[in-house]
Design a binder for these strands. Structure first.
Lengths: 220, 220
DNA sequence: AAATTATTATCTGTCGACAGATTAGGTCAA
DNA sequence: TTGACCTAATCTGTCGACAGATAATAATTT
């Protein structure tokens, strides 16, 4: 979602992003086997592009290879989610700290815009919109952290987490507290208080984690 | 290096680890083009396993795909190294913090052993041995952090960094200060002081970074 | 000789094929 | 009905092939 242009729309690339999107949306059941011929049929390609897509997805933790070589959708283990969030909190805190002195006026304006959109959605009780605006907020911040490996790591973590989030997306009750935390982060960024931005971000991510895990424990 | 058993010694897997090892050792020049047919010949396989290996290596940041689709060995950009170390310091600090309350007696014993080996090598002026023992120290700690995504992230960062390290490995002058820092970390772990272990680890990684980058700036 | 164009050699992305391994399905015995 | 066993259908890992694209080389012109 953070990557830019498409220099070559290869079939592999297409298959990868479509399958990944399907996984994030929950179109495939956890535990479900994904057969290469079947996916190839579905995407009207041969197995080669599918294979590459699955190789990539397995290294990214979306699917796993059985000893037989078959691929199945990874289970949504709540313990894994917790671990993902532990790393994410730390790494996204770092991103906030690094971004704080780097954000240009235009970046802060965009974040302000995303923030206001989020607050508007919260008032309208529009959970889907609030979540989208919230992600935009995080995206904008990450993009300006100036550290490419960090961007890659965090993008990967966020993508893996979003699979879990999709499970309870239908619940739709977005906690307005998240918007308040975002506002605190933004304030620290305005004031160029890097450490504080980091602390607030870590707190925010941890609370998001707690809320999501709570929902999952109830439903899933 | 941290992963365990080999359930299936596939050609892809073999090609991957061999090419990766070659990259880490610096057998391939930065910027060098890697052609699939050539590598296939070298490993006595068809292009398929090579292709999978290269796909993986490109996502791990060892090689990059040109717009033409060709693959070349990524340049050793010192700015990238710096960024890698920034993330690594934070993440490895987290690993230390998480491991602190989890390490069993046997783990601490093994770390003590690695530490003593390192100190022995330092006294004997055996840089290669000291580096190896130092890596063992970090490996042992990471293995017991209890967070799989963290292990994956940190392994990836360390592997990418080791390419840079290989460039100046021939210099061989290992700074004994590193061993002292390890000892501080270990002490904090013995005392189950998680925060302190984290702080010491971050400091240690940052100093390693500074030393390595200093060497690179002189030579590279 | 330098620049430019034409020609040739490679390379990548993708495809279909095949063998060995695995799974699913069905059969028969208890 | 349950369980062991056998058979058939899939699937994966790997291979070679081909077209279109790219890079390298030779030919040609200035």
């Amino acid at each position: 979602m953070l990557e830019s242009a498409t220099p070559k729309p290869s079939l592999s690339e297409g298959a990868y992003s479509e399958i990944r999107q399907a996984l994030v949306r929950g179109d495939f059941e956890p535990g479900q086997r994904l057969s290469e011929p079947e996916l190839a049929l579905r995407f009207s390609t041969s197995r080669s592009p599918i294979r590459e897509a699955l190789v990539r997805l397995s290294h990214e933790g979306f699917v796993e290879r059985l000893p037989s070589g078959r691929v199945r959708v990874r289970a949504l283990d709540i313990l894994e989610l917790e671990q993902l969030y532990v790393v994410r909190a730390s790494v996204e805190g770092l991103a906030a700290r690094l971004a704080a002195p780097r954000l240009r006026t235009i970046d802060l304006e965009q974040m302000e815009k995303a923030q206001e959109e989020m607050e508007r959605c919260v008032r309208k009780n529009d959970a889907v919109g609030a979540i989208a605006a919230g992600q935009e907020f995080h995206d904008l911040l990450l993009r300006e952290c100036g550290n490419q490996p960090l961007i890659e790591v965090l993008s990967g973590l966020r993508a893996r987490i979003s699979r879990f989030r999709a499970v309870v997306a239908s619940l739709g009750d977005y906690d307005p507290e998240r918007a308040i935390e975002h506002r605190r982060i933004l304030k620290a960024l305005y004031q160029r208080k890097a450490e504080q931005a980091e602390t607030e971000m870590i707190r925010h991510v941890n609370r998001s984690a707690a809320v999501l895990m709570g929902k999952l424990r109830k439903r899933g």
